[in-house]
């Protein structure tokens, strides 16, 4: 069943895309596309917006590769696993020495999601964020987030917090299924 996704192209995403396209390290970016979110294993860290930047600098032991990531939520327990997975990819590509830096500013927002990530969320059964975080009405609505399974808008919020901090829980009145909504942050 196909459900149309609201096309949202945010400035945060545009900036990220420009950084990647203008980067001299496109091979490493491509390599790290293999690292997926441990909680939503169809989405890469790049598409999720967690992967911020890649730089290389000279170092006493050769070239140092610096990968910058930003956590989604402060307490997201997946961040440590993401670091391990990035390290694994860098090890396999023999890109030692490397450093994985956590970057807090600018804070991650759902505007960092790529358009592809929104489609992937939907296909995975998670309703993507409905608006940009710059939108005045960016809070989770009580009703009407389209069901990712049957596309009905006859849905209602059950809880502001779902299976993880980044999601709220909804129930579809049409098909009866509960589903997660990826909150605007």
């Amino acid at each position: 069943m196909s459900v149309s996704t609201i096309p949202i192209v945010t400035s945060a995403w545009q900036e990220r895309l420009q950084r990647r396209q203008g980067s001299a390290y496109s091979a490493i970016w491509d390599l790290l596309d293999a690292v997926k979110d441990p909680e939503i294993p169809v989405i890469s860290l790049w598409d999720l917006g967690v992967l911020c930047d890649i730089q290389q600098q000279s170092h006493e032991d050769g070239t140092l590769t610096v990968v910058s990531i930003t956590p989604t939520y402060s307490g997201c327990p997946a961040v440590d696993m993401m670091r391990d997975q990035i390290a694994e990819v860098l090890e396999q590509a023999q890109l030692r020495p490397y450093q994985i830096k956590t970057q807090l500013a600018p804070a991650w927002t759902t505007d960092c999601l790529s358009p592809k990530a929104r489609k992937q969320l939907q296909a995975y059964g998670i309703a993507p964020p409905q608006t940009s975080c710059m939108h005045a009405q960016s809070y989770t609505p009580e009703l009407g987030v389209p069901c990712p399974r049957c596309a009905s808008s006859n849905t209602q919020r059950i809880s502001e917090f779902g299976s993880t901090a980044c999601k709220a829980l909804f129930q579809c009145e049409a098909c009866g299924e509960p589903f997660d909504y990826f909150k605007v942050l």
Partner: peptide
């Protein structure tokens, strides 16, 4: 259940902070 999840998520935000 939902409230249990919500409180645990809020706790995680604080511990992350």
């Amino acid at each position: 259940l939902e409230e249990d999840l919500a409180l645990s998520n809020v706790a995680l935000d604080y511990i992350g902070r």
